[in-house]
Amino acid sequence: MKSFNKRNQISAYKFLIPFFIVFILINLVPYLIGLYMSFNYWYLMTEFKSENIKFVGIENYTLLYTEPGIKQAMSSVLLYVSLSVMVIHPLALFFAKMISYCLKSTQAWIILAFITPYVVSDMAIEFSLDIFRDASGNLKYFKENWVSLSYYDALISIYQLVGFFTIVYYMVLKSVPKNIIEAAQLDGASIFLIFYKIEFNYMKKMIIMMFVLSIVMLIGSARGINFVIDNLWFVGDMGISAAFTWTYIYYLMLIIFFIFLYKKVRSFMARPFSARLSNQELSNARSLNPRLSNSRLSNVREEK
């Protein structure tokens, strides 16, 4: 059991008061009201009274799953996100590696050049892609359907986000210890081998985090989700809209639960078998198998 300094705890919670207030007002209360609303029917234009609210059970969710338009939009979101994620991260790693080779005096300009597309709005980028449009603003070279539009949006989001992730990866690349790389160079390893064997292993954790972050950012800007919310808004049925939010949260909870389960199982499997034996059994096993005495954990046990 950890022991905490009382003064430290009180001052920490004092700093966190504004966070709690904003979190409750912006996130927690809307989620709870949304959860209540997702099992009821309420039309937006009527007053929020018990006469106008009808309990419908899970009908909202079943409507969400059976509606063909929503299904198409969600599949387009999947296509768009997976496509752009597959392109963004390899490209960003490649550019980060290239920036690290440049002169230090030019790096500042390069970094600024990479950040700028992240700052510019996607609407403006879409607007500046006027090769794809005719004079009246319609798309020229392809038909407007969900598949082609998700390719088109992926192009824009790749342009926007590659620079951002390049700089994150560049910052991580800088923190890789230089002596290991030098040793590898002396042994005659090529750039690719060094990158794959050393630097990539150091960056693995950060890459996974950025992968998740990029998925969330892409979902936030997806055309499909905008389309669904827009339609639900103009229909005015608040129950289905709240159900839409909560299906997202259910999926999120499922994913978090599976990660938790995976970690538990992995930590259980990683524990050596010798840790579960008594001292007598361990010494017996050691006499049978000399390799066991070399294992790290059994040594630790001996010291205790």
Binding site: F23, P30, G34, F48, V216, A242, L252
Partner: peptide
């Protein structure tokens, strides 16, 4: 608190838009 922050990061605000409107309306 770190877990709460991760959850805030995981849910893009467009998804939370209509419940937010509901709270304001109520």
């Amino acid at each position: 608190i770190m877990f709460l922050l991760v959850i805030i990061m995981m849910i893009p605000f467009i998804v939370n838009l209509i419940p937010m409107f509901l709270t304001l309306k109520l």
